[in-house]
């Protein structure tokens, strides 16, 4: 193993780590605001990537129909709940009119000839709204339930989404075109253009998130909810709104990571889960609370994965997931009081 290989493994690890970092941030965010351990995060990644692949292939993305279905379901849930009926007009607009309008637009567009930027926007426009819809349908009715119940629901949603993924995308995977095919030479090290895109996009996203939480009213409201749910409610921040907003952000991050990962690897309908779980290992390193620790943990996971692939590729996943045990042990040793379950 020479310096060049170390550098290349490092580059590979950091690239994957950057994607895990994005997912880990979303997981920490969702957990902090809603107490949901968001297992389906990975599905947004896969759906985003596969929608993009369909667009590149010039096909009408089947996820649009899923969006329409989700919208109708959300509208139905709204219509059957007292709070939902109060804003039924807005619900119709977002859950029925918007998906149908999008479907209509896509029907008319020459999908095969769109520029990459437009495809990215369309993929976002299709998949991201399903985030808040998901919150409305699956989590909002039980927002006050114990963490454990929310977790089981989360796993159930994940399963249903994987099943739907197989249904709409089929068992085969797809890759998408890299955003940049340039190669840069840095000394003896070749750096792929797409690697830079991934790193750059991750940094931009993280900075954007920071600015959102630090500078905007909605961001501050979310932070307030994360710190003290009841307090935030008393201050007039609706937990339902905070939840939907969080899921919106999580979906944005999920889809963007999917777009970033699809040129590097073949994405399958069920790829999201394992990638998402590695984000989880990172998030757990951060105790599901600290953003910088989670991001650092993600890079660690990426590097560990890369180097263990080199040394013992058959045991790579064993090594990555067993990392969680020393992490938990360390957490367990540093916390020593009896905790009351919520």
């Amino acid at each position: 193993m020479d310096a060049e290989i170390i550098a290349m493994l490092g580059q590979d690890g950091v690239t994957n780590g950057a994607i895990y970092a994005l997912l880990a941030l979303a997981l920490v965010l969702v957990f902090a605001v809603t107490r949901v351990i968001f297992i389906p995060q990975g599905e947004f990644l896969a759906w985003g990537a596969l929608t993009m692949a369909a667009l590149e292939g010039g096909q009408f993305p089947a996820t649009v129909w899923l969006l329409v279905g989700c919208g109708v379901l959300t509208l139905a849930v709204d219509a059957f709940s007292a709070t939902g009926r109060r804003n039924i007009g807005r619900s119709v607009l977002w859950n029925l009119a918007y998906p149908l309008a999008l479907a209509g637009l896509l029907w008319g567009l020459p999908i095969a000839e769109l520029p990459t930027a437009a495809r990215v926007l369309i993929a976002l426009a299709i998949v991201v709204p399903m985030g808040p819809m998901l919150y409305r349908v699956a989590f909002q009715p039980v927002a006050e339930a114990p963490v454990l119940v929310l977790l089981i629901i989360s796993v159930a949603v994940h399963l249903a989404m994987v099943g739907l993924g197989l249904l709409i995308f089929g068992p085969e995977g797809s890759r998408t075109q890299p955003f940049s095919e340039a190669q840069f030479e840095l000394g003896s090290l070749m750096i792929g253009g797409h690697t830079l895109v991934v790193l750059g996009a991750s940094v931009v996203l993280i900075v954007a998130l920071y600015l959102f939480f630090d500078r905007t009213l909605y961001g501050k409201a979310l932070r307030a909810t994360a710190i003290n749910r009841n307090g935030a409610r008393l201050m007039g921040i609706s937990p339902a709104l905070a939840g939907r907003l969080t899921f919106f952000l999580a979906a944005v991050i999920g889809v963007l990571s999917g777009l970033l990962v699809a040129p590097i690897t073949t994405v399958y309908y069920d790829s999201g889960f394992l990638i998402g779980l590695k984000g989880f290992v990172a998030a757990i390193i951060g105790g599901l609370a600290s953003y910088p620790l989670a991001a650092g943990g993600a890079i660690l996971v990426g590097l560990l994965e890369s180097f263990s692939s080199f040394w013992a590729s058959a045991f790579k996943d064993v090594i990555v997931f067993t990392l969680i045990i020393p992490v938990l042990m360390w957490r367990s040793l540093t916390s020593h009081h009896v905790e009351e379950e919520e």
């Binding site: 690897t265 890369s306 692939s309």
Partner: peptide, 16 residues
């Protein structure tokens, strides 16, 4: 070398 169906990368294995 070994890799998983859903692995995001086989860079390390290929390097080896």
């Amino acid at each position: 070398e070994r890799y998983g169906r859903a692995d995001p990368s086989v860079q390390a294995q290929i390097l080896k």
